[in-house]
Design a protein around this nucleic acid. Structure first.
Length: 555
RNA sequence: GCGCCCGUAGCUCAACCGGAUAGAGCGUUGGACUACGAAUCCAGAGGCUGGAGGUUCGAGUCCUCCCGGGCGCACCA
């Protein structure tokens, strides 16, 4: 948060410089305030002088001195402001600033870190949206963890968030699903079936067929057309129920399960295509209807209605996004897809542009694939063949906390090796316990404090100037940085930054633990440290909650 | 062939819109519990950021080319 305050101060000084004629009025004040990598360079540093001097061809060090001198006047914030290197300005923050951070946190409680960044804008996060043709597997789990945490973060940062799952319940995949179940059912009734290669071969299909025969023993006597329809609907229902249960057990709740079928039933596909047609963006060629995607940056035009008269999947997606923006009116839409769909991004962006909207209104987050490691070996997975590790198995073997946490220990766009053995281990190798342990340790500390009869006092009463060791300041600085972390996660759509932050905070806490005692003869110092400990515990709890991971009182 | 993403320590990964001396964990070597939880901590070794150019005060980060890997390139979803 101090970074924000510094940036505000700098802004004021830029205006001052412009008034005094030191800087031209039309200058673009682009600069950063960030913690330097080297401790000797202070708590925060800014490149404002370098950036401005670059534009005006002034001497950066002279400009930096001008700023440094004036900024130093804020003695409540800065102990020292110095010019260094080619023209950086380094800030050494006043200890008294850091020491009052726990007061903020105590006052805000679970709301500490909450931002108004989103200003109440309506944002939709659509994620997982796996075809309902089989159980969710490990890759969907990653999408679920990233999407759900991102949604929580956006909401925490002041957006009005809705989470959505798009159900592809029409089209070819569905037909194949129905047929797969139908054929298995016939097989189960004793018929010999040559099961097609390109159908769903997983064991779960047999299971569904078995259930269907049990609930509706006569269904094979229907006409083939009716039986296929019945099998399809039944399978969809069962699979969707399973998906919903898996996600619920993973801690993921949706505001809306949106059916593709509904787009057709409500005439939205027609409506959206008409919208484009009226703008002259559709044309006919070789019996099909095409969308002028090229005009909007895609590499070629795309078919929306096949020569057969059937709409393509792309047509559904046009309608779906039409609905998102024009019917439901989201300010921002975040779609989370598997990275194998990346070629589809320009196509959909083209649609958004054709709608006359800024392409920034749609953000597509691509999630790289998950490789499963077993005993250090890559395990191959194939959905069609029914060989994969399901999210369900992962939840049962590894547990929700470790699974969610591990999925968020990488940037979404880098592939992730998921090592099941490691995830099950309850040791340092498994990062989730490291953070949870920090929380549990603090909980235990408060139990001990109570036993020792050290009364709990508020941060207002405590003498926080006693938080004066390097380890105190490490913790205080990290606590102060928490809201900045939230903002970074949201502005970059990178929830993994929160995971790394929590690991840093836990490290600082464990370090503190071995070097200092929270509870001692010195009652005022103990009380000050307990105030600090409470603040750390609060931030750990808030952070873990955003990740959807529990913050245990004991382990 | 074209496009997108990625190459950072032995391994797995960070590095906030281009910032100063590239950081963690695992592994490895050696150390720290008769005091709040050792699921912890401390120290050592380990790097030409795949390669070559370029842009500039300054490049892991931006541009070009090359090498290596992943994924796409449907009137499939």
């Amino acid at each position: 948060m101090i970074a924000k305050l510094i940036a505000e101060e700098i802004q004021k000084k830029i205006l001052e410089a412009q008034r005094e004629g030191l800087l031209p009025a039309d200058i673009k004040p682009r600069f950063q305030v960030e913690p330097p990598k080297v401790k000797e360079h202070g708590d925060y540093a800014t490149n404002v002088a370098l950036s401005l001097a670059g534009q005006t061809r002034q001497n950066p060090r002279e400009l930096a001195s001008w700023f440094a001198e004036r900024l130093a006047a804020r003695q409540d914030l800065f102990e020292k402001v110095e010019v260094a290197g080619p023209g950086f300005i380094n800030f050494f923050i006043a200890p008294s600033y850091w020491q009052q951070v726990p007061r903020f946190i105590e006052k805000e409680g679970p709301d500490y870190g909450r931002l108004d960044y989103g200003k109440g804008q309506k944002v939709q996060v659509e994620f997982v949206s796996a075809n309902p043709t089989g159980p969710l597997h490990i890759g969907h789990g990653r999408g679920a963890a990233v999407g759900d945490t991102l949604a929580r973060l956006l909401s925490f940062a002041g957006f009005k968030v809705e989470k959505e799952y798009y159900i592809n319940d029409v089209g070819r995949q569905m037909k194949i699903l129905g047929r797969s179940v139908y054929l298995r059912a016939r097989e189960l009734s004793g018929e010999e079936i040559d099961f097609p290669e390109d159908h769903y071969r997983g064991e779960y299909i047999r299971e569904i067929a078995r259930q269907l025969l049990k609930e509706n023993p006569d269904f094979l006597k229907f006409s083939e057309e009716e039986a296929l329809e019945e099998a399809k609907n039944f399978a969809l229902k069962i699979i969707l129920e399973g998906i919903k249960k898996d996600l619920k057990d993973f801690g993921v709740y949706y505001d809306c399960w949106f059916s593709e079928k509904k787009l057709y039933e409500e005439g939205l596909v027609e409506k959206a295509l008409n919208f484009l047609k009226e703008k002259g963006l559709l044309y006919e060629k070789e019996g099909a209807v095409w969308f002028r995607a090229r005009d909007f940056g895609d590499e070629k035009d795309r078919v929306v209605i096949r020569a057969s008269g059937e709409p393509t999947y792309f047509a559904s997606d046009i309608a779906y996004h039409y609905h998102k923006f024009f019917v439901r009116g989201y300010d921002l839409v975040v779609d989370i897809w598997g990275a194998d769909h990346h070629g589809y991004v320009p196509r959909l962006k083209a649609v958004i542009k054709a709608f006359g909207l800024s392409p920034d209104r749609l953000q597509v987050l691509l999630i790289q694939m998950v490789n499963l490691l077993e005993a250090g070996r890559l395990k191959s997975m194939s959905t069609r063949a029914g060989e994969f590790v399901t999210l369900r198995e992962l939840l049962e073997e590894v547990g929700r906390d470790a699974t969610r946490f591990i999925f968020l220990t990488r940037r979404a766009d880098s592939p992730l090796d998921f090592d099941v053995e490691l995830a099950k281990k309850q040791s340092r190798e498994n990062p989730v316990y490291y953070v949870q342990y920090a929380h549990a340790r603090l909980a235990s500390l408060f139990r001990k404090a109570k036993e020792a009869g050290i009364s709990k006092i508020s941060s207002e009463e405590a003498d926080l100037s006693l938080l004066d060791t390097p380890e105190d300041f490490s913790l205080l600085k990290l606590l102060d940085y928490f809201p900045d972390t939230i903002e970074a996660c949201v502005s970059k759509l990178e929830p993994h930054l929160l995971t790394f932050y929590l690991l840093d905070l836990a490290t600082a806490l464990h370090d503190y633990y071995t070097k200092h005692r929270f509870l001692s003869e010195d009652i005022s110092r103990s009380q000050a440290r307990l105030v600090l400990a409470r603040a750390v515990k609060q931030v750990l709890a808030t952070g873990l909650d955003l990740l959807g991971v529990s913050a245990p009182e004991r382990m």
